[in-house]
Computed example of a mutant assay.
Amino acid sequence: MADAGDLAGSSHLVLLPGVTHLDPASAVFEAMLAGWALQQRTRFLKAETISSRLRLARRVAEFVNEYPWQWQSADVEAFIDSCRNRREPIAVSTARLYETTLRMFLQYVSDPRYGWTVECLARFGVAPAQLLHEWNTIVHVTDYEGDPRRRPLTYGEVQALFDAADGHVEDIRARGCKGGLAAMRDAALLKTIYAFGLRRREACGLDLADLRHNPKVSAFGRYGGVFVRWGKSSRGSPPKRRTVLTVPEMDWIVAVLEQWLDDIRPAFGVGAHPALWVTERASRISMRRIDEAFTTARDAAGLEPTLSLHCLRHSYVTHLVEFDYPEKFVSTQVGHTYAATTAIYTGVSDEYRNRLLRRALSRHPELSESQ
């Protein structure tokens, strides 16, 4: 078993002994952050995740105007409160993320195995401590803490979105402007995202080789499903993989993909490029461009500006439930480990609930109206 002092992120690994610093406090703080970053890299966390956590620690230090070993509970609480009281206050989910991040940072610097408590006591006479506990952090009482205006689209709204995307193509053609091919690509892309319940990163990461034949449904040809290789990762794991099958209710996507691959994509002149979705510059489409495609169609359709691309994924989950697919099947299709996560995405319509109610009442005729 390795010595505790050899743990990645230990103080002696990032703060060399015997070195005299002009500003010891600043040097120790920077070494703390470097050590925390090292500790997280050994857990294979994403670089952007680590960077965002370090930025938050710096923000708190700047707000408090003290170093972590000098922080008090009231200081961290005041920082969260200041984020709530600005012109655009943070959401509850963001506040929870801040608290969780700061709790992890304070756990790291106060863990005696990493040596920071001894280092700070020797240099400054005070050691860092855990300041965030159950009694001064947000209580988790609901599964979903996002913007309540974010919701699944109704069938009519999905159709309006697609009609607007197709209409954008016709408008460009009528005006004789450039961009017709890109508009056709965007329309096909949005339909594919909905038809397979894809995340933005999953959609732009698709390659031609990810189209799958389903021997159980030969009529769909090579479009019997898509192999997602860039699923959401967690806790430093590689991207999760899954195969999303084409469901009969979404069989219209077969014709959409056929037109994209046979007629539209070749006109981009990308040659042997492996990506399914490409740009005029013969490159893979970016996540920003996918967002822009949705925003353009959403605004043209007159839908609420709070609706985002991810709402198409919510819509897919909801509509599969309304098509009476089992919960486990829906969770597998969208790559959820827990059914509770799928339930958060679900917002079944009144029509569906009334249909279930009528089905239940048919088994109990004595409860039905007699007149």
Rank of each mutant, 00 (worst) to 15 (best):
G221Y: 08
S26L: 11
A275M: 11
A339L: 11
V348D: 01
E134Q: 04
L7E: 12
R265T: 05
R281T: 07
A209W: 09
P152T: 03
D251C: 14
E322Q: 02
T332K: 13
T20Y: 10
R175C: 04
E66Y: 05
K191C: 02
Y108D: 06
P17Q: 14
D23H: 14
H168S: 06
A301I: 15
A293T: 03
D171I: 09
E258M: 07
C311E: 04
A339Y: 05
T246E: 00
A8K: 08
I344E: 00
S26Q: 13
A78E: 01
T117L: 09
G176N: 05
V317W: 00
A182D: 15
Q130P: 09
R86S: 07
A129E: 14
V278T: 12
G224P: 03
S82H: 01
W69P: 06
R96N: 09
L161T: 05
A267I: 10
A25L: 02
Y155I: 03
W71T: 02
T337W: 04
S370H: 14
K328H: 11
S368M: 15
A255Y: 07
A31F: 03
A300E: 02
R173I: 00
G236H: 05
V19P: 10
A25Y: 03
T100E: 08
P128F: 02
R113C: 08
D143M: 09
Q333Y: 02
W116Q: 09
Y98P: 00
D6H: 13
H273I: 12
S349L: 02
E351C: 03
L38D: 14
D6N: 14
I80M: 10
F196H: 11
E99F: 09
P238M: 05
A203W: 03
L106A: 00
A182Q: 14
Q159I: 06
E119D: 11
R53I: 10
L106I: 02
I80G: 00
R113K: 08
L102M: 14
Y352R: 03
A127L: 00
P215E: 10
Y98N: 02
A360C: 01
W116N: 08
P89S: 12
R201F: 08
Y223E: 05
A282N: 00
G176S: 00
E327H: 13
C311P: 03
F227R: 14
D350W: 04
P274A: 08
A25S: 05
L190W: 06
K328A: 12
L276D: 11
R363P: 03
D143L: 10
A34G: 12
P266K: 08
M287E: 13
